[in-house]
Each structure stands twice: as structure tokens, then as C-alpha cells.
């Protein structure tokens, strides 16, 4: 399969700050997840492949054409930027109509496509309201709508699930998968591993401006599974719960922080979570907060790079 996007020896500096370093990569049709912690270089990569910024070294080709200063290419590209920025005085529908007009559609076609895009992102009822009055989730959805309204071949989305509620997330994930099933190319960035995992198996890991790994997400998952897992718990009777945990074989360590937070280290995450509800019920313990710091991508990267 030929590459839809091809970058070679791509580097970008912002003054003395490294944005991206010596990236060579081919992206094929389908969904590709760009994964990396905040500040890793994901947005820089996406800005480079959409011609927002110019590389210091290297080339970017999209469907065989250079991207920088090649406006005709943008009839085939949809871009959903990360920043929460809009023409605030416009209504959602008016915003879409004008973006479509700039894409070269006739008035009637703009209307049809704007209505369809609003429907797709569940904003039909709010299309007439000014964007200034939108909630965070609605703003995110109208941003997605402008990126898909012109039916692009290549959809590039920078953290598209930010600010969406679980239902909204599911819908956008479904939309992205539909794009893939139509043979199109979608590139999605995120710093949240499960978000990317819900969309695709194909990932590119970026860390400190470099491509750290590329390929199947299961490779990363396996690494995570084989790595001792940390779970943070805040509950009503932490000492009792800690005593129960210590009795289990898969629990390696239990520590307490000053604020009452308990950190449990286990080498079998699935068994741990399978057992937890019955343990809580049996001992009448209320959970206030539970989180898994290892699910944070930074922790995975720290582990992978051995820090």
C-alpha cells in the first residue's frame, strides 16, 4: 500500500527549543494514532503535515504533493486543530457555511453540507446560536464539524476528544471509524492511550520530538502489562484495605502518602480489579477516588525509556 503521507528527515526548532527531530515516517490509509505525552511534539508534527508551519529540515508530502504553500491540497484535507479558538460572534452554522464557501462550494451545497455536518456532531439544535455561548463540548464538536463538512480524503485531528463527554467521545470515535471504512485516512493525536486504543491499532509514539516507536498498539499494551502496575486509591478505611491487599500474591507493595492516598503496586492488573469490588463490599469500605497513574502515557514512556 502506498503512503498517503510521507515525511523524511523532518526537523523543526522554535528558536532554541526542539519541536521535532529527524522524523522519517510513512502513513498509510486507515486510522493512525499519534501518541505522546504533552509537549512531545504531536502538535508540531500535525502542524507540519498540514502546512501550518515550515520545517527547518526535511520534506512532507501528502498524496505525493508538498504541503507548504499548496492551498489546492486543502480541498482534500480536513484539519481539526487543538486550540479552542473560534470566530466567536458567528453562529455554529454560519461558521460552517463560510468555511464551506472558502472551500469553494456553491451556496446551496454549503447549506446542505453544513446541515449534515451539524447533524453528524449533534449540534442541529444549537446551529443558530453564537459560538461564544457554546459549552466546551459543543465548541469541540463544531471544530470537528468544520473539519469533516467538506468530505476530505485525509482527516487530521489534534486531540479531538478533549472536552467531550463519554457519549460525545463514543460518537466521534464511531465517526472516525466510519471514515476509515470508507477508505480514507485519519490521523488522530492524543496523550491518552485508551482513547487511541478505541480507534486504531496503528500508532506512532512520539517523545521529546522523536518517533519512539511505530506499529501495533498491542506492543505497547504488552509492555504495560508486563510492567508492575500502580493504582492509587482514596477510601474510608485505607489501613484495613491495605492489610487485605498485602495478603494477595500479585500485590508487590502498598505505600501511603500524607494525604491519605494509598498506592498499590501489582503485577496482575486484571486480577486486582476483578477482586476489588468484593473486597470493598466484604469489608464495608467506601471508595472516594481510584486512579491508575500507569495509564498515564508519561508513566509508560518513563518506563519505556528506562527513567
Amino acid at each position: 500500500m502506498s503512503a498517503v503521507i510521507s515525511v523524511e528527515k523532518l526537523s523543526k526548532w522554535y528558536g532554541n527549543v526542539l519541536g521535532l527531530s529527524d522524523v522519517t515516517l510513512d502513513i498509510e490509509a486507515g486510522i493512525t494514532g499519534i501518541l505522546g505525552p504533552n509537549g512531545a511534539g504531536k502538535s508540531t508534527f500535525l502542524k507540519l503535515i498540514t502546512g501550518q508551519i515550515k520545517s527547518n529540515i526535511g520534506t512532507v508530502r501528502l498524496q505525493g504533493e508538498t504541503v507548504w504553500n499548496n492551498p489546492s491540497l486543502f480541498a482534500r484535507i480536513g484539519f481539526c486543530p487543538e486550540q479552542d479558538a473560534f470566530f466567536e460572534e458567528l453562529s455554529g452554522k454560519c461558521f460552517l457555511l463560510h468555511m464551506l464557501k472558502l472551500s469553494g462550494f456553491s451556496g446551496e451545497e454549503c447549506e446542505r453540507r453544513a446541515v449534515r455536518a451539524l447533524e453528524t456532531v449533534d449540534l442541529t439544535g444549537a446551529g443558530g446560536r453564537v459560538i461564544r455561548s457554546y459549552s466546551r463540548g459543543m465548541r469541540q464538536r463544531i471544530k470537528i464539524a468544520q473539519s469533516i463538512a467538506h468530505d476530505p480524503d485525509v482527516l487530521i485531528m489534534d486531540e479531538p476528544l478533549n472536552g467531550l463527554d463519554p457519549l460525545g467521545r463514543r460518537k466521534i470515535i464511531r465517526l472516525i471509524k466510519e471514515f476509515k471504512s470508507e477508505g480514507r485516512t485519519v490521523i488522530v493525536s492524543s496523550h491518552v492511550l485508551p482513547e487511541i486504543e478505541a480507534m486504531t491499532n496503528q500508532i506512532v509514539l512520539i517523545h521529546q520530538g522523536k518517533i519512539f516507536a511505530q506499529g501495533d498498539i498491542h506492543y505497547i499494551r504488552d509492555l504495560i502489562e508486563s510492567h508492575p502496575h500502580m493504582i492509587s486509591i482514596k477510601c474510608s478505611r485505607p489501613r484495613l484495605l491495605a492489610a487485605r491487599f498485602i495478603e494477595e500474591k500479585d500485590v508487590i507493595d502498598v505505600r501511603f502518602h500524607e494525604d491519605g492516598e494509598m498506592i498499590v503496586e501489582t503485577n496482575d492488573r486484571d486480577s486486582f480489579f476483578g477482586r476489588l469490588p468484593s473486597l470493598l463490599l466484604k469489608n464495608d469500605i467506601d471508595i472516594h477516588e481510584i486512579s491508575s497513574p500507569d495509564d498515564n502515557l508519561q508513566a509508560v514512556f518513563d518506563y519505556l525509556i528506562g527513567s
Partner: peptide, 11 residues
């Protein structure tokens, strides 16, 4: 930060 919407159009 609205420049992105304009420069990602075929204009």
C-alpha cells in the same frame, strides 16, 4: 488563533 481555519482551506 483563527488563522488555522483559513490556511487549511483551498484559498
Amino acid at each position: 488563533k483563527t488563522l488555522t481555519y483559513l490556511t487549511t482551506r483551498p484559498v
